[in-house]
Amino acid sequence: MNMANNLDRKEQVVLSVEHVKKKIGRKWIIEDVTFDVREGEIFGFLGPNGAGKTTTIRMLVDLIKPSSGMIQVCGFDVNRQQEQALRYVGSIVENPEVYSYLTGWENLEHFARMQPGIDKRRIQEVVDIVRLDQRIHDKVRTYSLGMRQRLGIAQALLGRPKLLILDEPTNGLDPKGIKELRQFIRELADGGLAVFVSSHLLSEIQLLCDRVAIISRGRVLAVGQVEELVAANAKYVIWELEPAETGRRLLAGQGIDVIEQADAILDDAIIAGMGPDAIVTRMEEEDISAAVKHLVASGVAVQGVHQINPTLEQLFLKMTEGESID
């Protein structure tokens, strides 16, 4: 097997997932998932709880076998050539579970023995990277959650992976820890590592990721760059009109899309700042001034026109049609 050739052919695609399906019992948990992750990018995997995120991640690291479809890492089939494929993968699936009766160092030695070519120097290197050298010789049961998280990442980095898979990495971290982790992940990606991050926190993904896949009910709804996805989404405009009813009728009469159930598609922060009579519309920016003129000419007072910058959360809410994302 020549890895270099495989890489050339795949044009730096580190992880490729093609039409993966998974049936557990009689239920199709994953109906059709396809995406690629490339070298040096941070790829966000976004979906509500129960959408199939964890099942997909478990398939990426051969904990679960897909019912059909193919998953390749650096050109190797994860489910058929585990030993070749998983050599390029470092992962934390759900919580960073390590042996609590061993010290941090002993844990790293344990996982280092499962892969050729990792010596003491490499272990010391990853310990330094995650800044755990003060407590590395203490038993893991005395570690805080943040320290376990860092030990988990150290473990994932041991084998000099090309793909790092982190499942909900910010769970249980405080705001400072989250910020540090974000910066840390960015540094790793700048070093050429492909990072796959799953999360249900949309703002987190928007801040962190270059590209995202949105998954719901076992299907990938969209894959693309964060800005593109967000920009392609129609913009919302909030109107404060007096009298409100007449204004609503006039706007609708102009052929403008007036949204009745605004709380299903807007961020909570925006809804909280809206007046009780606010009217939410979906329209293009250039149509706003015409609409204002028409309203004023018809005797409706325009007290406020507010354009909302699109966020991933709105896109997500629209795509999953208000499905719960707690």
């Binding site: 585990q82 998983l86 050599r87 919580n95 042996y99 996982f111 499962m114 473990q155």
Partner: peptide
């Protein structure tokens, strides 16, 4: 029980 099986089986070693 401890969940470490996930760490053990995601290393490049056949089950």
């Amino acid at each position: 029980t401890s969940g470490t099986i996930k760490m053990l089986l995601t290393r490049p070693v056949k089950r």
